[in-house]
C-alpha cells in the first residue's frame, strides 16, 4: 500500500503533457500551460465583467473594491520604484494575479501551474528581464553597468552573480513552496482522508499560496527598485 502511494505520489509530481502539437517533431503542451489558459480566460472574462460600467462620479461597490485594489498596487509599486513606477504596475499586477490564481486553483482540483518548475522558471526569467531591463533603461548603458558596482566596487562579483541567483531563487522558492505544500497535502490525504486535509488545506493551499504570491511580486519590485532608484 505504501509502495503504491509512493508510486502515485511520484507520478503526481511529474508534469503531465496534456497534448502534443504535431509540428516540428511534436511540441508538448503541458497540463500547466492548459491550466494557464484557463486562468487567462478567467481573468480576461472577469476583467471584462467587472470593468463594464466604470463611473467617475458614482462608483458602485464592485468598482470601489476594484479601485481600492488597483490603488493598493499602484501605491506599493510607487513607494518601491519611485518616479518611474507607472509602466511597472500593470505587469506586477498581472504577475500577482496569475501566481495567486495559479496557487489557489488547486482547490478546484486542477493542477497548479506553479507546481511546474518550467512555469516558475518562465516567471523568474521575466522578472530578471524586468529588473535588469529597467536598470539599463533608466540609467543608460553606462549607468546600468555602474549599478553593479554599488554600493561599493568590492561587491561587483556578488552583484554579477545575483543576475543568475535572483531569478533562480525566485523560481525555486515559488516552485518549492507549492510543490512542498502539494506533497504534504497528498501525504495527509493518504494518512487521514477526512477533516484534517481540509483544515491544513486552508494553510497550504490558501495562505501559503497568497504568501508566495506576495513574496514573488514583492522581491521583484524590490530588486527593480534597487536597480532604478537614485541613491539618496
Amino acid at each position: 500500500m505504501l509502495e503504491s502511494f509512493k508510486e502515485s505520489l511520484v507520478s503526481a509530481l511529474g508534469n503531465k503533457t496534456a497534448f502534443t502539437i504535431p509540428v516540428l517533431g511534436g511540441i508538448p503542451v503541458a497540463d500547466s500551460v492548459v491550466v494557464t489558459w484557463i486562468i487567462m480566460a478567467l481573468l480576461a472574462a472577469l476583467s471584462l465583467l467587472l470593468t463594464r460600467k466604470l463611473s467617475v462620479r458614482s462608483p458602485g461597490k464592485v468598482q470601489t473594491a476594484l479601485e481600492w485594489a488597483v490603488q493598493l498596487l499602484n501605491d506599493f509599486v510607487r513607494s518601491n520604484l519611485g518616479a518611474h513606477w507607472r509602466p511597472f504596475a500593470p505587469w506586477l499586477g498581472t504577475v500577482a494575479l496569475y501566481i495567486g490564481l495559479s496557487n489557489l486553483i488547486g482547490i478546484l482540483g486542477l493542477t497548479p501551474p506553479t507546481k511546474d518548475i518550467s512555469v516558475t522558471a518562465a516567471l523568474a526569467i521575466m522578472s530578471m528581464l524586468l529588473i535588469y531591463g529597467a536598470q539599463f533603461r533608466y540609467n543608460g548603458l553606462l549607468g546600468g553597468l555602474k549599478k553593479f558596482a554599488e554600493p561599493m566596487p568590492l561587491l561587483l562579483p556578488i552583484n554579477l552573480m545575483e543576475v543568475a541567483i535572483r531569478p533562480l531563487a525566485l523560481c525555486m522558492r515559488l516552485f518549492g513552496n507549492i510543490l512542498g505544500a502539494f506533497i504534504i497535502m497528498e501525504m495527509l490525504k493518504f494518512l487521514v482522508p477526512v477533516i484534517l486535509p481540509a483544515v491544513f488545506s486552508i494553510y497550504f493551499d490558501l495562505f501559503d499560496g497568497l504568501i508566495q504570491t506576495v513574496v514573488f511580486v514583492f522581491l521583484t519590485t524590490l530588486f527593480t527598485g534597487e536597480g532604478i532608484q537614485e541613491e539618496t
Binding site: 508538448p28 503542451v29 503541458a30 494557464t36 489558459w37 511546474d116 518548475i117 518550467s118 512555469v119 516567471l123
Partner: peptide, 14 residues
Amino acid sequence: EFEPATILFTVINL
C-alpha cells in the same frame, strides 16, 4: 526537468 516548450508557452502566456 525544465521543459523549453513550457517555458516559452508560459512567457507568451504571461
